[in-house]
Design a protein around this nucleic acid. Sequence first.
DNA 1: CAAAAATGTTTTGAGCTTGAAATACTTTTT
DNA 2: AAAAAGTATTTCAAGCTCAAAACATTTTTG
Lengths: 156, 156
Amino acid sequence: MSANSQPRSASAESKARLRLWLRLLKSTRGVEAELRERLRQEFGSTLPRFDVMAALSRFDAGLKMSALSGVLRVSNGNVTGIVDRLADDGIVVRVQVPGDRRATLVRLTRKGQEEFARQAAAHELWIDELLGDFDGDEATDLAARFDAMAHREEDR
Amino acid sequence: MSANSQPRSASAESKARLRLWLRLLKSTRGVEAELRERLRQEFGSTLPRFDVMAALSRFDAGLKMSALSGVLRVSNGNVTGIVDRLADDGIVVRVQVPGDRRATLVRLTRKGQEEFARQAAAHELWIDELLGDFDGDEATDLAARFDAMAHREEDR
DNA sequence: CAAAAATGTTTTGAGCTTGAAATACTTTTT
DNA sequence: AAAAAGTATTTCAAGCTCAAAACATTTTTG
């Protein structure tokens, strides 16, 4: 009955979502902090650098700066700085795109590929440890669930 | 049987966890990006500022700088900067702790309380919208699940 | 074909973030 | 009570992050 049965349950739902958000944030920040720390300790590197290397590792032909910032969903200027430092370290190279003098292609060097392979192997072990609470089936279910959510986000 | 039935399934489990982690990261980063954008647009503020205000709002008597960085799980120096700017804007005040001239207590001002109330109300609506994929029960279940995980993290 | 619009990247300025060093004060030890 | 150890906070240097502005080049349009 009554037109106002909604408000009460809507509010309870809203509180439940807020609680979920706070837990999600705490969990992912915790894992991220641990990953940062280990990348720093074990490889003298950072998460943003790892993310750039991971993205480039999927494209042997390299990526344009704009494509890279698109894949990573960070700003152009941001990628400029990270790639600068990665290039200084010989992990990536910038290559002119023939026929378009505005664009540059960024590619992992041989050294970059080797370095990424080492880090990615360690990274997978770390994740396995840090998300050890979830067994294979639960992880698979949740991954599908959050994939749906991530997709809904994209349409916004 | 065989001694090597473990490796195969362990690896599949590890892949499932890695996939989960990537989805989790994508989802939470997406929501965070949206929150940042809205805080900027609607309130000319940022997530770190919101986090500090939220923490202080739970302690009428104020928090010491070290307690604040403890609650937020960020470095001391980090909090110094955010509190500096919040103080410049009249959102918080630093108060001397009687009997200990090293410490300072940070408290929301009246203005800070009012500002936080407005932002928190909007924030709750935003989260309700952004996590709209999850109904109340699912949100409650998942919150408990990630709480368990976050607790395991703390023991590390 | 010149002007205008679009595309690709870097620069800039402000704020966030960290770990380590510096500073200031308090408590404990000798 | 001086020395040493511990606690509270800020400063520093380096890197990450964004939005907006600046630049350079290419494509489209009038």
